[in-house]
Every structure is written in C-alpha cells, then in structure tokens.
Design a binder for these strands. Structure first.
Length: 304
DNA sequence: CAAGACTCCTGACGGC
DNA sequence: TGCCGTCAGGAGTCTT
C-alpha cells in the first residue's frame, strides 16, 4: 500500500513525463473518485474538468502520502492512492500489457498534449482525486515530513512526551507525523526496539533518539529501493515492483525468525491494525493488570 | 484526550 | 470444481 516511499517514487518517475504537459481532455470512469472528505462531498465532475482543462503542469510534488500536480492558473490536482491506487503514463496508442490488464480498474484518464495519457487506476476504489486553488483546501491537518528538517530527535522526544498514546497508532496518525503507514511503522519500531503498544510518554530519551534514526533510515532505504511490493498492487509508474520488501525485518514475517535474535516474529492487532513485532527485541510494556493480578504475582513468585 | 467500532471496496484465500 | 464467508487496510466519522 502506497506510503511515503511509494508515493515519492511515483512522483519522481512521473515528474519528467508530466512537467510541461497540458491537460487536453479528462474522462472520469467512476465519478466516486472525486468524493473528497472535507470538501462537501467533493467536486462535481463538471467543476473538476473546468478547473483542469487546458492547464499546463508546472511541477509534480508530494506532501505526506498525497501527490500534487501543480498547474498554471494556481490550480493543483491533488490525489491519494490509498490502498491500491496507481498512476501511469501511457503512450496513448500503445498501452503496455500491464496497462491493458488494468483497463477495468481505470477510474480517471487525463489526455495530454503530447499524445500520452495519465491513467489513475484503483482496484478497490479507496483512492480519491480533487482540484483546488490552495493546497490547504484539500489537505487535512498533517504533521511534519519525516525526511524534512523539522523532524528532529529533539522534536520527536518532546512530542512523544506530550502525548499519552500507544506508539503504533500514534505513528500512523498523519496529524502527528505525515507519511508513515502500517509497513514502515512496524519496521521503524522494530529497528528502534520499541513495542508497538508502548505508551508514548514512557519512551525513554535514548529510545526516542533511536526511533528518530530508525524512521529516517527505513524511509531513506525504502525510497532508494523504489518502495515495497509484496502483492499484486504496488508498482512504480514504470511498471516495476519495489525492492524494499527484501529488507523487511518484521512486516509480513510472522512466524519467521527475527534476524537479530532468532525469536519468532509475532503478529497481533494494535489499534485495529495488523502489527508485526519481535517479542524479544521489543519488550512489551507492563500493564497494570499484569502488575496487580494475583496470578501474575503467583507467577513471579514461582519464577523466583 | 484516547481508543475502539464502523465504513468504504474488491481480490485473494481458506474451508468444505 | 465451485461457492461462500472472511480478511486486509488508510483515513474519516462516530461512540465510548
């Protein structure tokens, strides 16, 4: 599922093909793709077309997991790939085999002035598109970019202390830190040796420093490998799978052995999310129940 | 403020 | 073989 590294890859590969192009026609194959939260149900197709037709694409950027096509006339085409969204540029005449196979999942088509076509493909229909003048009309509250200058170890430590939330859902919260998803949160927490249920204000200073470095390392490596592909869904706009899945330490490895300590990786549910961790490298926080129940006290005595 | 439930959607997969 | 139920998951919204 596209997270920061995947969207960054998409944006980098689309940039040379899109910058300078003009949108000359738009076909919406599924109007629901415009249902944008926080914009009164999203733009009517007519408005969406009016805002974009004839615009020249000036830049292709990323913010969090959103892609942003900045156009002249101060209009931006903004979108989210959610689970199964893809963007590809096809030479209109000769779509590749991959593109032909995806035909039934094409939700929007943008014809460009050089004869190519930008396709927005999305099997599960979770992805969305919109067109706005100011970016903050479309984007919800977002935390800092984890690869940007604002994300420092000091900032992270202060923020962790000022919240009292489980680490997994906190790092998934885009208003806290923007761009991490299920995969990279699990990978980062493992690398930092922090249990996904650990409460944020109990994370020690050295752990916060390690987590900061882990997030940066994991994301940077994942970007350099063009993201992660482990199912049929994520492919780069050039049709290649990413390579970072080869480096997964925990994600999708439940039952397999931790590469650091050879303990079997566990899969659990944390905040309604499938969560992978190593029970030895990432020690579980002691819950009040564990501390106070009679049975645990008996266990402790038995153990000692 | 935190956390859980529920929703959207469809392909994949397990069970029989 | 084929049908059917279940699951996955980003993020918004609603409830506890």
């Amino acid at each position: 599922m596209p997270e920061l590294p995947e969207v960054e890859t998409v944006v980098r590969q689309l940039r040379p093909r899109l910058v300078g192009r003009t949108v000359i026609a738009i076909t919406l194959r599924w109007a629901g793709v415009l249902a944008w939260p926080g914009l009164g149900g999203g733009l009517p197709p007519r408005t969406f077309r009016q805002r974009l037709l004839g615009r020249r694409i000036l830049a292709v950027d990323r913010r969090a997991k959103y892609f942003v096509l900045r156009c002249d006339g101060a209009i931006s085409l903004v979108g989210h790939l959610r689970m199964t969204g893809r963007l590809v540029v096809t030479p209109a005449r000769q779509p590749s085999d991959v593109q032909r196979a995806s035909q039934r999942w094409v939700r929007a088509e943008f014809q460009l002035d050089d004869g190519t076509c930008l396709l927005y493909i999305d099997t599960r229909k979770f992805g969305r598109l919109t067109a706005v003048r100011a970016l903050d009309e479309a984007l919800p509250e977002l935390g800092p970019e984890p690869l940007g200058p604002q994300f420092t170890a000091q900032w992270l430590q202060a923020q962790l202390r000022s919240h009292r939330r489980q680490m997994k859902p906190l790092l998934l919260d885009q208003a806290f830190l923007a761009g991490l998803g299920n995969i990279y949160v699990d990978e980062s927490l493992h690398r930092a040796g922090i249990h996904p249920r650990r409460v944020s204000n109990e994370v020690t200073r050295p752990q916060a420093v390690r987590l900061h470095r882990a997030i940066r390392t994991v994301l940077t490596r994942a970007v350099s490998r063009e993201g992660s592909s482990f199912d049929a869904f994520y492919r780069t706009p050039e049709g290649r799978p990413g390579g970072y899945q080869d480096e997964f330490a925990v994600y999708g490895r439940s039952g397999e052995l931790c590469r650091r300590c050879a303990t079997p990786i566990q899969k659990t549910l944390v905040g309604q999310r499938g969560t992978h961790h190593c029970p030895r490298c990432q020690r579980a926080p002691q819950t009040t129940r564990q501390v106070h129940t009679r049975s645990s006290r008996a266990n402790l005595q038995a153990a000692s």
